[in-house]
Simulated scan of single mutants.
Amino acid sequence: MGITARGIGLLVVAVLLLGVGFRFGYPELTLLGAAAGIAVAVAVVIAARRPRLAVHRRADPDRVARGEPATMTLTLRNAGRLRAASLLATDRCGDRVVPVPVLRLRPGADTTVRYDVPTVRRGVVPVGPLRVTRRDPLGLVVLARSYGDSVPVWVHPRIHPLSAVPTGAGRSLDGRVDAVPHGSITFDSLREYVVGDELRRVHWRTSARVGELMVRENVDTSLPRIVVLLDNRAAAHPDRVDGVAESFESACEAAASVVAAAVREDLPVALLFAAAAEPIPEPTAPTTPASSGSGMIDGPGVGPLDRLAAVSLAADGTLEAATARLRRDRLGDTLVVLTGPGSRDDLGYVGALRGAYPSVVVGVFGAAERTPPDAAGLVVVDAPDGAAFAAEWDGVRRW
């Protein structure tokens, strides 16, 4: 609660009039001073009365790709019995303040305002809470309160279609290494039935043709797994304008493109960061179904695209430590490392992973010169942005 300049002036006048009136015996001045003091007290009571307001907000959609439109619909309802007079409301959308017209809202009535959420930058845009300012009719006292919760709008990186997706190498139980497009319990051959075989494995059509029971013989194959390591270290992306590193934004777009391509092909994919990422805001369930046009593959909860929207550059961490974790854990068979111009001298650490990962691809963004083709014996894709990376990626013939 705060007293305006008008309220402070009136309170000072009230004290002076009461003092002069009592000191020199002027009842008229005393009466005026008392009236001024009562006016300030009444203003405090009016402003302190908390209006009953119900706030409902809906983002359409709440997950979008960078540059796509998103609209926030805010509905404010007067749930009290008294007219909500002299109210001023503003909603916070990222760094913007959006005015909400609620002046003299009748009991049971509501007002709705719609506005565009800025999506020009990747990130998580916090929207809300609604800030309602109440004033007394004379403008002596002002009191601001917050209503409703803050809702995040997830602005995902752009996704560029990739036609080439590495399937990796799958290992069967007998030690063979093959290119496996889809891993599971895979059919291998038919053999004669022996006592103890499960009847559900009997291949009835073949049994009817040969005149004896034949059962399916299956083999276990491992699922090919793609591991995407996004280098989010500040040292890897030294060129920044207004705190934004375009090379890092391009790397995020490339990571989103690889993840979306893997999901499209039903391949397991793991997204990792070179440096510790900041805590991710609590997500809300999407208000609209996933759209193939926007490349939205995340459902309720935190998915890879939500993580890419929330990740930022970090000052700690080294590429050597990140690659050491990858060598120890061996999370897959195809490794995609996406970094910036500041890590070109550290690609040797990535090259040392070729024994643990059969396929290693490195994407370098924002470098002034192209990386030598034999750098650490790696497949290196130099690209100025995410779109160029997608074009170069589809031209790679060896993984």
Rank of each mutant, 00 (worst) to 15 (best):
R104Y: 05
C93Q: 08
A89I: 11
R114E: 13
L103H: 12
S86E: 12
P107S: 05
P107D: 03
R92E: 13
A109T: 07
Y115S: 02
R92V: 14
L103F: 09
L105Y: 05
R104D: 15
A109P: 00
V100D: 06
Y115V: 04
T112I: 07
R96S: 11
V102C: 07
L88P: 00
D91W: 06
R106F: 01
R114F: 00
D116R: 12
D95C: 01
T90F: 08
C93G: 10
A85R: 15
D116I: 12
P107W: 07
P107I: 14
D110V: 01
D116L: 08
L103N: 12
P101I: 13
R92A: 09
D110P: 00
A85T: 15
P101N: 07
V98E: 11
P101K: 10
R92H: 15
C93V: 15
G94R: 08
C93D: 13
R114N: 00
T112H: 02
D116H: 08
R92P: 00
R106S: 05
Y115T: 01
V98T: 08
R92M: 06
G108W: 07
T111G: 02
T111L: 00
G108P: 04
G108C: 06
T90H: 14
R92S: 10
P99W: 13
P99K: 08
R114M: 01
A89Q: 10
R114L: 00
L105E: 04
V97G: 02
A109Y: 01
D95S: 12
Y115N: 02
L87S: 04
T112K: 06
A89T: 09
S86F: 12
R96N: 10
G108D: 04
L103E: 14
R96I: 10
D91A: 02
D95Q: 09
R106E: 15
A109M: 05
V100Q: 02
T111M: 04
A109I: 01
R104M: 03
L105I: 05
V102W: 14
V113Q: 03
L103R: 15
D91I: 09
R92D: 07
V100E: 04
L87Q: 03
R106C: 00
L88W: 13
V102E: 05
T112F: 06
A85G: 06
R92Y: 11
R104P: 00
C93K: 08
C93E: 11
C93N: 11
D110M: 11
D91S: 11
R92N: 01
R96D: 13
G94H: 13
D95A: 12
V113F: 00
G94S: 09
C93L: 11
D116V: 14
V100G: 03
A109C: 05
R92C: 01
R104S: 09
A85V: 13
V98D: 02
D110N: 06
L88V: 14
V113W: 08
L87C: 04
S86I: 12
V113A: 05
P99N: 14
V97H: 11
V113G: 03
P107F: 03
V102K: 10
V98K: 03
S86R: 15
A89S: 08
V102A: 05
P101S: 07
Y115G: 03
V97L: 15
D116C: 01
A89N: 08
G108R: 05
L87K: 02
L105M: 07
T112W: 01
A109H: 08
L103T: 11
V113P: 01
